[in-house]
């Protein structure tokens, strides 16, 4: 009976995440449009897109490996959803919590990127392959700064569990302020992970048509897009949980509203970043990540270590 309840709960949670993902996509698109002097889509646009794509025929290239081609979108969705289960929402307690969950979340969030790569590679189109190679190149550029920037707050909080981290910072909100550099680095790296301007080389339509997703259509493409939407929410939630753990113990309702507000703030910043920049070249991005982003994350770690030493 309890297993059935758990499954029911998981399904509900999945639906909730999907809904939130699409809502976030709408907000992002609307913000982007308003900042560009456009009207933007109506609120139901992401839902309509999803329904339309799901209703379309799946076309699998003759040369593609059908198993891998079909498996990848499912894998992407699963990985994102699993990561979501580890992140606290309105409270400091996530569904699954253990010491080391921060690392698990970061690595679960890497899986969608790998599925983009494998999906693109196995669809055997030239454009997909170039996109796939770019996806992987990009992964090596932003992954380390992202991990380092999440590492720094963990060092200060003396824990690898996201629950204890949130708990620590909500008790000592002043310490959270020392993580400012890390939060900026994490936000930029997240932009790279989500493959949005200025880091959208894997899908640069003017160069390689649809990039990784060139050959995807119908349900499979819908799943990939849903996975990206969810990834946006999970990524934003991770940043919120690690860097903005304020007002956690004010009850489910206010806590939830606060959580939404914090996610919105992250989305706003990400949309702003993509409004004001042009797409970089792949090698410019790698240089940027290793020259500026990674050292900035290291500085954050040094700050955390120094603070640790002072407190002792």
């Amino acid at each position: 009976m309890s297993a059935l309840l758990l499954i029911l709960f998981l399904i509900l949670e999945f639906l909730f995440l999907g809904f939130l993902g699409m809502a976030v996509e709408f907000i992002d698109r609307k913000l982007y449009a308003r900042m560009q002097n456009r009207i933007g889509p109506p609120w139901f646009q992401p839902f309509a897109d999803f329904v339309k794509l799901v209703a379309k025929e799946d076309i699998i290239p003759e040369e593609a490996n059908p198993m891998m081609f079909k498996l990848m979108p499912v894998l992407a969705l699963t990985a994102v959803f699993t990561a979501f289960l580890h992140i606290p929402l309105w409270d400091s307690t996530p569904l699954i919590s253990f010491n080391g969950s921060v690392i698990v979340i970061v690595y679960l969030l890497t899986i969608p990127t790998l599925t983009f790569f494998l999906g693109g590679w196995h669809s055997t189109s030239l454009f997909s392959m170039i996109g796939a190679v770019r996806t992987l190149t990009q992964l090596f550029a932003y992954e380390v700064p992202l991990l380092l920037s999440v590492l720094a707050p963990a060092i200060l909080a003396h824990t690898w569990s996201i629950e204890e981290m949130s708990e620590f910072y909500s008790k000592n909100p002043l310490f959270a302020l020392t993580n400012a550099i890390g939060s900026i680095v994490a936000m930029i790296a997240l932009q790279g992970k989500l493959e949005r301007v200025p880091f959208d080389m894997p899908e640069a339509e003017t160069e390689i048509v649809g990039g990784t997703f060139t050959e995807y259509s119908g349900r499979l493409l819908a799943m990939f897009r849903l996975a990206i939407d969810m990834e946006t929410v999970v990524g934003a939630s991770l940043i919120v949980a690690v860097f903005l753990p304020f007002g956690l113990h004010s009850g489910p309702l206010i806590g939830f509203v606060l959580y939404l507000a914090k996610i919105l703030l992250v989305i706003l910043l990400l949309a702003l970043l993509r409004t004001v920049t042009a797409r970089l070249r792949i090698e410019q991005m790698v240089v940027f990540c290793w020259k500026y982003l990674a050292p900035a994350a290291l500085v954050q770690i040094i700050i955390s270590l120094t603070l640790n030493w002072i407190i002792k």
Binding site: P198, T206, A278, R279
Partner: peptide
């Protein structure tokens, strides 16, 4: 030119 370098904001403006 803005669109080709992925700077759609310039295109819209």
């Amino acid at each position: 030119a803005g669109h080709e370098i992925g700077f759609d904001t310039l295109l819209m403006y």
